[in-house]
Amino acid sequence: MLEIKNLEAGVDGKTILNGIDLSINAGEVHAIMGPNGSGKSTLAQVLAGREGYDITAGSVNYNGQDLLELGPEERVHEGFFLAFQYPVEIPGVNTTYFLRAAVNAVREHHGKEELDAVGFLKLMREKIELLELDESLLKRSVNEGFSGGEKKRAEILQMALLDPKFAVLDETDSGLDIDALKIVANGVNQLRRKDNAQLVITHYQRLLDYIVPDHVHVLVDGRIVKSGTKELALELEERGYDWITAVQAA
């Protein structure tokens, strides 16, 4: 589904991603762990098509397409999704209106009929239950005044509505208490299917107790320095990132 080869990227001449190789197949959940500043969020932003990053080498093949050639919205139309670490507040834009516009933008791309207000509401009610979100949030402006947990749950609601083939979850666990974490993880797990894939980016192992990955990769200084199974996450939790960097240095 996704094949990243030797990806190098940076900002203002400073290299952040130092040659990433990563291959993800349909039906798999991968986790990327790493210390602060290792390039985790940069990877997420580059995959989503954020402007301002210079891609200096490498390629990203997504279902036979050159992902890096696509605009951010085109990636979404092709089934890519990023759940933001810091969801953006957009005062004045009604959440329901925004979500319907997003869903219809993707539907339009696939030649499907627009969902009208009634059809959309029905779809949204199904998904909102999954995430135990208060429906009144949807009457407010996008993310405005939402608590940290509400913002993260709203991200997963968006994911559920857009039904992506490949989703990147960028530090979705940050700022969540254990109950909210369980709700979010449960939501993500219910969206897991044989024909889609997820890349979970996290600093802590905690999230991976609930979203269990098939593969775990450790990112240090913009490079994947170690890959393994879910046990690697536990080992990291126990021994810390210093252990990996020490092993690297040796």
Binding site: E51, P72, E73, H77, F84, P87, I90, A101, A105
Partner: peptide
């Protein structure tokens, strides 16, 4: 940031 967020949900830049 707002423009990118909306584009990352499938809306084109003009929209």
């Amino acid at each position: 940031e707002q423009i990118f967020y909306l584009r990352a949900r499938g809306l084109n830049e003009v929209t």
